[in-house]
């Protein structure tokens, strides 16, 4: 049924893209069903992405500057201009000129974003930041899957952010499994909060930022588990790695 096929193509486009022939087929079907919002599945996928992901990583300053310079040269509207009238050309030219002026006005004020190491050091210098070393997380029934991991966690409750460092944490294939950080606060283990999903470099020291979507209340323990790709909403905490109980000073 064409309508079902339309939904299938919209879902495909939102998640894995379309071939040229599929894109043409989609255009044809969208023309047949004007009641269906062509962006509906893309918006749903974007919302899901935002719901799962959190704590956007700062864009490198040099890249930010490069993008600004590219926009300053204003090549972007060209592809759109191709289907426009002369009036459209003029509109884009005016917009490009305005953009060039705008970018020129703020270009010099760009400052390099601090690295994760610098951000961590800055947070560590604050009096209300707590820190603690990773320890092996094992008991009689469940042993740590990755012994010998070193490093520490630092956390600032008022800022609601922190950093983990690891040495000796082996890299994973993220299509098979990932590391996930859980924060246990005054609400207890039953309401543990996901703080990060991450992979490790395998060699050298790894710095991973912590940025829980849900506000913590007096975070007391930080535990790392191995979970399915993409992380999990509720962990059984059976695949343990390390745990830390950070304190002031």
């Amino acid at each position: 049924m064409s309508r079902d096929r339309l939904w299938e193509l919209l879902a495909d486009r939102a998640t894995q893209g379309l071939s040229e022939s599929e894109a043409r087929e989609l255009d044809t079907l969208l023309a047949q069903y004007p009641d269906i919002d062509p962006d509906s599945m893309d918006l749903a996928a974007a919302a899901v992405d935002l719901a799962i992901a959190a704590g956007a990583e700062p864009m490198p300053a040099l890249l930010k500057s490069r993008i600004a310079a590219t926009l300053d040269d204003a090549p972007a509207p060209v592809a759109v201009i191709g289907r426009r009238s002369i009036a459209g050309y003029i509109g884009w030219a005016v917009a490009a000129a305005c953009l060039a002026i705008a970018i020129g006005a703020w270009w010099p004020s760009f400052k390099p974003s601090p690295s994760l190491a610098e951000q961590r050091q800055s947070l560590l210098s604050r009096a209300d930041t707590i820190k603690g070393p990773w320890g092996e997380w094992s008991d009689e029934s469940v042993k740590s899957e990755v012994p010998g991991v070193r490093g520490e966690v630092i956390w600032n409750e008022s800022e609601q952010r922190g950093f983990m460092t690891f040495t000796g944490l082996p890299a994973k294939d993220p299509s098979k499994e990932v590391y996930q950080l859980w924060i246990i606060d005054e609400r207890g283990m039953g309401q543990r909060i996901s703080g990060a999903i991450f992979d490790a470099a395998g060699t050298g020291e790894v710095i991973v930022p912590i940025s829980p979507r849900i506000k913590t209340k007096n975070a007391a323990a930080f535990a790392v588990t191995i979970e399915e790709p993409g992380g999990t909403w509720v962990s059984d905490m059976k695949r343990r790695v390390v745990i830390a109980l950070p304190k002031k000073g």
Partner: peptide
Amino acid sequence: QSAALSEALPAETPADDLRDEAAIA
């Protein structure tokens, strides 16, 4: 995909703490 990631997941009752479309999603 094999890039190192650091992304947060709400744990058990995420919707009340997120906003807008992300909370609904």
